[in-house]
Each structure stands twice: as C-alpha cells, then as structure tokens.
Design a protein around this nucleic acid. Structure first.
Lengths: 220, 220, 220, 220
DNA sequence: TATGAATGAGGCTTCATTCAT
DNA sequence: AATGAATGAAGCCTCATTCAT
C-alpha cells in the first residue's frame, strides 16, 4: 500500500510541525519545573531527544522559543475570553470574569511563567515584533472587556468608575490568585486549594458590583 | 583631640557597615532599574564606587546580596504589619489590611523585585539558611494575622471560612495590585493610578467581610 | 517522437553537468559578493534553487567547490597565456605580458577571490590532489614563460637577470594591479580607473626591457 | 627595599600593558602561521599562557584584536613613510619609494596578514570606528605622498599623469612584491629572493620617471 | 584592607555534512 | 536522484568568584 508523493510530503511536514510542538512542550515543562534562568537550549534539546542544532531549525533563538510560548498562551487566553464575553452578552453578567479567572487559573504555573517571560523579554529588541503582536492581541481583548464593562455600568450592574478600573482590579486579583498558588503558606491539600481559589474567584465576580459592597465606605 | 582606641574601632565598624548598606542600596537600585538577570557584580561594585573584591568582603556571593535585600524587605513589611495588628486590636478592624496594602504598595517595584528574587533563590541551596530565616519571619507574621482573623471571625466581622483564606485572598489582591502597577495597560496619569489602587485597596478591605458581599451567591 | 535510450542518457548527463556549472557559478557570485567566509553551502544551494543534499552529489565538500573554481580559473588563465606566447613567438615581444595582464585584469574580483581561495586551501589536506593539479598547470605555464623569457634575453630584448625574475616581477605587478582595483583610494570614475590600469600595464610591458623603456609608447 | 605605593601601581599597570602586548604578539604569530580563519581566541589565550577571559579584559572582541594589529601596522608604516618623505624633501627623489617598499617588505607576512584582515573587517560594523581611524591615518599618508608627487611632477622628475597614478602604481607593485614572497614558484634560496625584491624595488623607483629609467642604477 | 586582573565553566549560536524518505 | 531535516563539534563571549599585591 504505497502513499502518493503529496501524501508523503504532507506527512513530512506534519512530523516537522510535531517536532516544533515537541520543542515548545519540552521547553515549557523545563521552564516551569526548573525556572526561567536555569534552562539551557542544550537541555531542551536533550530532554526533547533531539540535537541542539535541530532546535535552531525551528526557532531563531532561545528568546523566540520563549516568545512563542507567550503568544500561544495569549491566544488561548484571548479565545477563552471571547467565549466568556459572548456568554455575558447573552445575559450572564458574571461569565466574563469567570472565564477570565478560569483561563488564568487553569494552569497557574504556565500563567506565572508567562509573566516571568514578559519581564524577561520586554526589552529584548530581537523579539520586539512578536511582542508587538502579543500586545495587539492583548489590546484587542482589553478593548472587548472595556466595551462590555461600559455596557454593564450603563445597565447599572457595575459601579460607575472608569471602566478599566474594573478590568484592572480583576486582572490584579487573578494575578494574585495565580501567585497564591505558589505561596509557601499554601502547600495545602487540594480541597483547601480549590476552596480558596473559589473564594477568590467569587470576590472577583462580585467586586465592583453595585449595591452589594461598600454600603459603608470602610476606609480612612 | 585624639579619639580613643575603642572609638576608632567603632568608627571603622561603622564605615564597614555603611559600606555594606551602600552595596545593598546600589544593588537594589540596579536590580529594579535593569532587571534581575542583567545586573552583574562588577556593575554593582562599579556603581557603588568600590572594587569588586570588596563586595566579596561583605557578602559571600551574589545570591547572598539578593537574599539580604529580601530579608530587609521582609523585616520591614513585618514591622508595618505589627503596627497594623496593634491598631486592629485597639478596635479598628480595617487597619491590618490597610497597613498590609500600604506597606506592599509603598514601593511596588521593590515588592515585585523581591517576588522575583524569591523565585530565583527558592532552590538555591547556598542561601537555604537565610531563606529559612525569611520563612520564619513570614510564618510569624502569618500566625499573628491568622490569630487576628480568628478573633474577627469569632466577633462576627469576617466570614467564617478557614482563617488563612482571608489572609491569602488579601495577599493575592495585594500581589495583584503590585503587578498592576507594571501592567502595560496602566501607563496612566498618576491620578488615575492612585484612584485605581484605592479602588483595589477598598476591595481588599471589604472582601470577606460578613454581610456585605455575597447576599446572593453569584456563581454557578 | 521518442528519443533513443542513449539520447535520454546523454540528456540526463547534460542536465547533471549543467547543474554542476550552476553550482559553480552561483558559488562564484556569492563568494565574490559576500566574501570568502560569509558564504555557506546552504546559501549556495538556496540561491542555485536546488537542495543542499544535491550540492553534495556533485562535490564532496565545500572545499572541493572552491578548488574547482580555482582550477577553472587557472585553466582559463593558462589558455590566454598560451595565445599570448604564440603571438610573442610570432614577433610581438609585448604580447605575453599584455595577454597576462589582460587575463588577470579581465575580472579582478575573480582573480582576487582565487588568491584568497589559494591561501584558504593551501594547507587543506582534503584537496591536496587538486591543488597538485593546479600547481602542475601553473608550473607548465611558468615553464613556457621562462622559456620565452630566455629567448628574449638571448635576443637582447630583456635584461639579463635570472629568467624567473621577469616572470615574477610581472606577476607581482599584475597582482598589485588587481588589488589596486579594491583599494579604497581608488573609488574613482571609470575613466580614471582605465587610465591607471593602462599606466600600470605599460609599466609591466616595459619593465625589465633592456637599455631603456618607454622611448616609444609600446602599447596599442 | 620597599617600593612606594605609586610605584607599585605603575608596575601593575605596566604588567597589564605588557600582557596586552603579549596577546597582540601571540595573536599576530598565530594569524601569520596558521591563517586568518584557523585561529581561535581560545588558542591565542592558551598559546599566550593566559585564560580565555583575560583576553576579554583587554579587547572587546576577536575583531578588536585584529583591528588593533591593523592599526599598529598602519601607524608604523605611516611613520616610515614620513621619514622617507622628509628625505625626499631634502633632495633624494627616490627616498619615499624606497622607504615605502622597505616598510612593506620588512615583514611581508605581516603586510599580507593586514591585507587579509582588512578584507575580513571591512564590513564589520563592530569595528567601524577603528576602521575609520585607520582610514584617517592612511588618507593622511596618501595626501603627503600626493603633495610630494605633485612637486616632483612640477620639477619635471615624474611623468605628468594624475598624481595618484604614481602612488597607486607604486602601491600596486609593493602589494605584488609582498605577494610574490608567498608565490610557490618563489621557494628559492634567500639570495635569489633578495635579488628579486631588489629588482622589483628598482622598478618601483624608476617607474613613472620621465624620459628614461635605469640609465644608471638608482638604488642604494 | 581594598583592589581588580585573572580565570574558566558554561551559555548561545552556526554550519558543514549525513542520511532517511 | 533530489531533498532538507537532523546533527553536534566548535566558536565566541559573559560573568561569578578568587587571590596576589
């Protein structure tokens, strides 16, 4: 049973792409396990079972591998968000926030890694193009959220503060929720962990909601 | 007017300690300005106006300098916290949280740096002793907080969930608040920045308070 | 109209040879344009529109490609020289020198490249066989020239110094003329360039002539 | 017998500079012996008996070492030339040319190496500053020569062609003379070598002279 | 005591060559 | 026969740390 020539070529291409994904996955695992600055290209290659040179057939540099991880993650987060926004549009006001928290908390280690990567690559001119792409995706997500927030403010559901306050407060809490997973006081059993994250997510979903909080200004 | 021998020795010690502080301060500034992985010992020495070898008279290694920055910061945060706890004991329930947020948001760049440093040094055996010290300080702070939270729960002020939920939620939000300062969507004018941080701090101070939120469970 | 089997094979061989020439030509252009050490086999293949593996069907190594360029050039120079020698034999004493200069100055970039290649490959054992071939061609040329020079010395036309002095002086000047084309002080207009090269060639044609030079302009 | 502190510091600086010269010398020898592309920084360090890192205390990069060799050589050639120009000014018309040939032929291997280096570094942006310096020195030399040539043309000593023809022709012949030393037909005994180089130098000193050359032997 | 020159392990990247398809 | 993905030796350079002065 022979394969056609085009079929063979397709298979080859697929193997090539698979290998690319293998590199990403291996790099991702190593970066999460051993920390941003401890992982070398040689190690990625060796753990992926390929030669060092092969890595450079797929990526121009170590920075590009990292950048790719960031972009993949940003795209996946943005997609989750879009689903959440659609659900909110259909009348479920908490859906965006929930989607947002869920997508970020689905793999806290990855989320945290991506934060580290962003700090690391921020000033790296060699990936500025991809960084710009990433910012584009993010800006587009943020815009969708802000549009939605404005609607919810108009609808009297959210407190009337500058719309991005809501987004950024939510971002901040999610960020903190991610980090809390790595807090050393938090080596608890899984149940407790889930409970806490739900506790925090609930805060995220209600904070800024009109009426429910701040019946009294408690500060100062 | 000659100085006594002991006085001379005291002066010498003081100069030595001043120099040590100079190294710490210089390292701190460089680490904040140029990022964790870009700063070399040579640079610290040069910017501090001393020789590289001198740095090693004060610190065994680069990691020890970083560790020292962490310890200093942890101690200062713990002190602020103690003040807050005392105020809360005297009947101002929000004071701890406020103190906590204020101490962490007083210098977000430093707070963030210390987070980075912790990740960086977590697995570094050469500083495990100091890391243990740091954890001791932290555990002690956490214990004080949890004690207080338990009182507030008993007093019906805070929601009755495992006490450390309150602490960790608060920690998470503060963490997020720190990070939000470096969010690229957040290059706003100062006023807006202050407003947002107050918005977030207020959330921190009310979240978990009984009665005010969660009159309806909004999730699932 | 079907082709005979031998015809098909001939065509195939021709295509193979064409491809070989294509590789040589592409390599040559790249080497001249971008410099000896900047050109990679991958680049040659890509610019020639063939696969990297194919290059290795034609040449055992990168060094062999370079060697081939040298041999081709040496053969072509030797041929020009033979023509010049014949003309000199027929009574035109300047013809050899003129032919020699013209063949080397016809493409100074190529001549210079070949010099670079020779330095590069001199000690490369993997091409010592071909290098020996090249030396054979060269030795044969030199012998012809020396024979001729001896006749011209006997005939009282050239100064009576060891015959190879004349050849080597001529070689030196030609070498210099080639290099002068790349001298940075020499970014002149074309006219000036031509004038200078003629000036130098004239020197080459008269130098070592007995008694006097240039009482009459001897060229064209 | 103790040394003063300043004296100690001076010694230290001197040792540092000596080491720098050692690196240059070692690099020079290796480059000449084994060819431009075969020499690695590790090798230079090892042959100089120092660590690899030490090389980088003295030079920013391998290219800077090469550049330094070029600059040193250019400066030394320029100095020889100045002496020759002064002698010519004092009434010895051949002195410049003689000085020029002698300085270039004093160490043909070095001269040739510098030519190779120039080709290699021409397009290297990382040394463009030093390359500019080098060109400045060279331009200054060329200007002095052209001034002198103009005087000699006015004085009826040199043929009336564009002044830089004389310089470039001379340059070309010197270049060729250098290369001839490495010509494989030229593995002669030393005497023959000297004779040939004198033959060529004489050509250099008479070429372009008005009326006639070599009615008298003009050298030495 | 303070210094900074010296060190070399270790990181990233390139590229000639091989070989399975 | 043609291809190009895979390989890994080898090169350049950085920087934490040491140690002689």
């Amino acid at each position: 049973m022979t394969l056609s020539s085009t079929e063979k070529i397709r298979q080859k291409k697929q193997r090539f792409l698979d290998r690319e994904q293998l590199i990403i996955d291996t790099a991702l695992n190593l970066l999460i396990d051993r920390g941003l600055e401890k992982v070398t290209v040689a190690e990625i290659a060796s753990k992926a079972g390929i030669g060092k040179g092969t890595v450079y057939k797929h990526f121009e540099s170590k920075a590009q591998i990292m950048m790719r991880i960031m972009l993949d993650y940003q795209r996946s987060t943005a997609a989750s968000l879009r689903v959440g926004i659609e659900a909110t549009d259909k009348g479920n006001p908490g859906a965006v926030v929930k989607a947002y928290f869920e997508s970020r908390l689905a793999n806290p280690a990855l989320d945290r890694l991506v934060q580290q990567l962003e700090i690391r690559l921020e000033a790296d001119a060699s990936v500025s193009d991809q960084m710009e792409q990433l910012m584009d995706i993010r800006r587009s997500s943020v815009k969708s959220i802000n549009d939605m927030v404005e609607k919810l403010i108009s609808g009297g559901i959210l407190e009337d503060v500058p719309p991005h306050y809501h987004y950024l407060a939510c971002w901040a809490l999610a960020q903190g929720a991610v980090d809390v997973c790595f807090n050393r006081e938090f080596d608890d059993e899984l149940d407790s962990k889930k409970g806490l994250l739900k506790f925090i997510t609930d805060i995220g979903m209600t904070m800024g909601n009109k009426g429910q909080m701040r019946t009294k200004k408690p500060t100062q």
